[in-house]
Design a protein around this nucleic acid. Sequence first.
DNA 1: TACAAATGATAGCAATACTATCGTAAATAA
DNA 2: TTATTTACGATAGTATTGCTATCATTTGTA
Lengths: 225, 225
Amino acid sequence: MEMTVNIKLNNKLFLRNPDESELGKKILQYSIILIHRIGFEAFTFKKLAAEIGTTEAGVYRYFENKHRLLLYLVDWYWSWQEYRLIYATNNISDPTEKLSIAIKLLSTSVEDDTSTSYIDEKLLFEIVIMEGAKSYLTRHVTEDNKHRLFKPYKDLCARIADIILECNPTYKYPRSLASSAIEMAHSHNFYVKHLPSLTDFNSLNTTHNVPDFIEDMVFSVIRIP
Amino acid sequence: MEMTVNIKLNNKLFLRNPDESELGKKILQYSIILIHRIGFEAFTFKKLAAEIGTTEAGVYRYFENKHRLLLYLVDWYWSWQEYRLIYATNNISDPTEKLSIAIKLLSTSVEDDTSTSYIDEKLLFEIVIMEGAKSYLTRHVTEDNKHRLFKPYKDLCARIADIILECNPTYKYPRSLASSAIEMAHSHNFYVKHLPSLTDFNSLNTTHNVPDFIEDMVFSVIRIP
DNA sequence: TACAAATGATAGCAATACTATCGTAAATAA
DNA sequence: TTATTTACGATAGTATTGCTATCATTTGTA
């Protein structure tokens, strides 16, 4: 059986829906490749257009600016992670096991998922680690938030907060803990790679790793040994 | 008795030391005000120059570019926080109390500290929350790191990691926990203000707050009730 | 009094972040 | 079939950004 996952995103993210045309899909595909290669700061619509053989104006027909494109990619990523979490925890009743799965899914690098042809999930994972925070660290967070542009991230946080409450209904800070765990899953992957002295891991010694640390943290906090 | 704290920073951060001249101090003072007002993205040396009545080229004589200036401010901030931590924990022997003080210092907004005339610590605190991550989320992290430009941050992390180890010498992830706590101190202040659904606090209900959550987290993890 | 250092003033330039217009090809409706 | 929308390519243009360079003037130091 062949099947594809189609992730629908808030239509305020784009001017023309990129997943409904060949050019649109190419914009998504090559923006991931190019941002991954040169970084979001150096990334421009002109360079992207040259990469895929269209013009700058052509890209502007799909996205207002590169920040909106980043938001699209980040939202896609969080929606995809939520889908993976639902899929991976299906039929599992033990909430601690669900939590453990969630932590592993979020903090472990992935292989390119073949279910979507034009999105390279491995590259996207690395982009979200490196550039993800820039999607909300702006002057217009509040406005973007009103337009529900952070909904996928919040939905995932809420889902994990629910699992935390299932584990321990008396824990006082489920949402804060959920968002912290998700952020740590990314930030510590960044630290391991770029600022290893901020962690207790190194790429050689694999006895300790990021998901182990986060699991230890989360389960300690909600008092599950 | 009057005294001033003078923070010396890595001289690779600047071309000409800004704290050794009137113009340099004005650059620091007004860059904080301007970045706080319009955000780091919209901030330019031209606008800064106009603000303080000098020219664009004048600012470039002190800092290579605006990213280096941000790094200067962020490094200044972390050095200042480490100084505050040393000062506030002086003569305290109980490591759990030291840890508690550290968490409060890092996660609670400050009033403008009068010990430095040209740096507004309250504004700087808010800048580091909003823009701090951009100091290391770049293509040149590795190079900047080689030049020791993140040393103040790492020093503070190491100091807190040491306190964590004093509390519990068997805890496996002291550095990861320290860097996480510091980051959470900032990120959750950001969430409370801009994305409150990611937290369990709100500005009205002050029964729960950011330092309480982080304390609960840290002490749970190192198994101190 | 001489000299170097710091600053001010101005110019210029390539790249960025757009916006606008126009022609054409392909898909769709009448 | 023809008419018409739509999507795209091509080109042009503009304000701003992110610098670098030059030269004159002021200011502090020897």
